[in-house]
C-alpha cells in the first residue's frame, strides 16, 4: 500500500514554504492590526482550501484556537482594567469594548501564527526537509530535531492510542463526552510520559548505532527540488522582511 502523496503547493521547496510562513507570521505580529490579521487569515483559508489542505489544517487550528480564544475572552474580555466603554457588569467582571477588541485582536494574530505553522507542518514531508538540510550541510542533529518537531504530535497521538488500547484490553471503560475524556487523560498521562521518555532513550541509542551523529559528512538518498530561483526568492524575501522590520520599528 503506497501512502497518498501529501497535497503540494506547486513544486515549492520546504525551505521556501518555511520562509513564507516565517514572513507572514512575523509581519502580521509586527503590524498588530486586527484587520490585517483577519485579511491574512481569510487569504490563508482560501489558499489552503484551493490546495486541498483546508480540511486538515483548519480543524487542527480550531482545536488549538478555540480553548485559547475562550481563555482570552475570560482574561481580557471580562477583566480589562484599561477598558472604559462598559457593555455589561456582573460582580467584579466588567465586559468592556476595549477588552473585547484586545482579545479579538490578539486571538486573530495568534490564529495567523497557528495556521501558517500548521500549514507548514502538514504540507512538508519531514524526509524532504531532512534531505534539504543535509544538502545544505546543516548539522544532522538540528535537522533531526526539526523533523521530530513536525512529527511529534502524530507520534504522541499514536503512543497515547497504544496506551489506551492496553488499558482497555485490561478492562478500562472510559465514558463518552468531556468527563469521560478527562478521566481517560488522567489515566493515561503518567504511562504516556513514561513510555515517551523510554522511547526517546532507545531511539537515541539506535540512531547512534546506525551511525547517526558521527563526524562524517552526511549524504541524502532522497532528492528534493530546490531551484536556484527559489533560493534567490528566499534570500530576497528574508532581506525584505529585515528591511521592513528596520523601517517599522525604526520609524516609531
Amino acid at each position: 500500500m503506497v501512502s497518498a502523496a501529501p497535497p503540494r503547493l506547486g513544486r515549492l521547496s520546504p525551505l521556501t514554504v518555511l520562509c513564507a510562513a516565517v514572513v507572514i507570521a512575523v509581519t502580521t505580529t509586527a503590524l498588530n492590526s486586527w484587520a490585517v490579521s483577519a485579511g491574512v487569515l481569510l487569504g490563508l483559508a482560501v489558499l489552503l482550501a484551493s490546495v486541498g489542505l483546508g480540511r486538515k489544517v483548519l480543524p487542527a487550528a480550531a482545536v488549538i484556537m478555540v480553548p485559547f480564544g475562550l481563555s482570552l475572552l475570560l482574561t481580557h474580555g471580562l477583566f480589562f482594567p484599561e477598558g472604559r466603554s462598559v457593555l455589561w457588569t456582573f460582580g467584579p467582571a466588567r465586559v468592556t469594548a476595549e477588552g473585547l477588541f484586545f482579545a479579538a485582536s490578539m486571538g486573530l494574530r495568534t490564529a495567523v501564527f497557528v495556521v501558517v505553522f500548521l500549514a507548514f507542518s502538514f504540507h512538508v514531508q519531514p524526509a524532504d526537509l531532512m534531505a534539504l538540510l543535509t544538502k545544505y550541510r546543516t548539522p544532522p542533529q538540528l535537522g533531526f530535531v526539526l523533523c521530530s518537531a513536525l512529527t511529534i504530535a502524530p507520534a504522541i497521538a499514536a503512543r497515547a492510542r497504544r496506551v489506551a488500547q492496553a488499558q482497555q484490553a485490561r478492562g478500562l471503560v472510559t465514558g463518552s463526552g468531556l468527563r469521560g475524556r478527562l478521566a481517560a487523560v488522567r489515566e493515561q498521562a503518567v504511562p504516556l510520559v513514561l513510555a515517551l521518555l523510554h522511547e526517546a532513550g532507545s531511539r537515541a541509542d539506535s540512531l547512534e548505532a546506525r551511525g547517526f551523529g558521527g563526524r562524517s559528512r552526511r549524504t541524502s538518498y532522497r532528492e528534493v527540488t530546490d531551484s536556484r530561483a527559489q533560493q534567490v526568492f528566499r534570500t530576497m524575501l528574508l532581506a525584505a522582511l529585515l528591511a521592513f522590520l528596520v523601517f517599522w520599528y525604526g520609524a516609531r
Partner: peptide, 16 residues
C-alpha cells in the same frame, strides 16, 4: 522516523 519510504530507511546508515 525521518524516512518516508523503506528505500530511504535502508539507506539511512549509508547516508550517515
Amino acid at each position: 522516523t525521518v524516512a518516508a519510504t523503506v528505500a530511504e530507511e535502508i539507506a539511512f546508515a549509508l547516508e550517515n
